Computed example of a mutant assay.
Amino acid sequence: MEKVKFKQWWEGDPSRSSSVQKLHQFVEEILLPNLQNESLPDAKAERIFIFIDEIDSLLSLNFPVNDFFVWIRYCYNQQAHDQNFQRLGFTLFGVASPSNLISDKRRTP
């Protein structure tokens, strides 16, 4: 997706109110369906890894951190229901314990 089109898409739909909702829609509707290895004879889909460095720095951002980590868990849980999500993996780098990353006590880290 071209940079200009992506920017228009990202800012376009007001129904996607949070950054996490936008990220989810991007991954589910654009990234996963459109990234495939055309050179493989069986058209096997490529694995996609999202690397997040300095994960502990997320805690100081004006960003729904709890929702972000819940979304990562949602993506993992979706692997049982949607083959596209089986292609998606996350790698988190930084210094933080799970309880530091999800501060909402109603959600398990």
Rank of each mutant, 00 (worst) to 15 (best):
Q86T: 13
S39H: 14
R73Q: 15
W10H: 04
A80D: 12
S99V: 01
V95N: 01
V27W: 05
A43D: 05
L58V: 03
A96E: 00
N84Q: 08
E11D: 11
K5Y: 05
Q25Y: 11
P109S: 13
D67R: 09
P41C: 09
R16C: 05
F85A: 04
Y74M: 11
R107A: 03
M1C: 11
F51N: 04
H81T: 04
F26P: 05
Q8V: 06
P41A: 14
K22Q: 15
Q78A: 14
P64S: 13
K7M: 07
N84W: 00
E46R: 11
N100I: 00
S103A: 08
C75D: 08
R106K: 11
S57N: 12
S60Q: 15
Q78L: 13
E2A: 10
K5F: 06
A45K: 15
Q8F: 00
K3V: 07
S97R: 09
S99M: 01
D13A: 06
Q79N: 09
D67Y: 05
S19G: 12
Q79A: 10
F49D: 02
S60T: 14
P98V: 00
W9V: 06
D42C: 06
G12M: 03
A80W: 02
D104N: 14
F63C: 11
L101T: 03
F63A: 13
N100M: 03
D82M: 03
A80F: 07
P98A: 00
P14D: 06
I30H: 15
F6W: 04
L59Y: 06
E28R: 15
I52H: 00
Y74K: 15
F90K: 04
N62H: 13
E46F: 01
T108E: 09
I48Y: 09
G12F: 03
L88N: 02
P98Q: 01
N37T: 13
Q25V: 13
T91K: 01
R47M: 03
S15K: 11
L40A: 12
L23P: 03
N100W: 01
N62P: 01
W10R: 04
F68E: 14
V95Y: 01
A45Y: 04
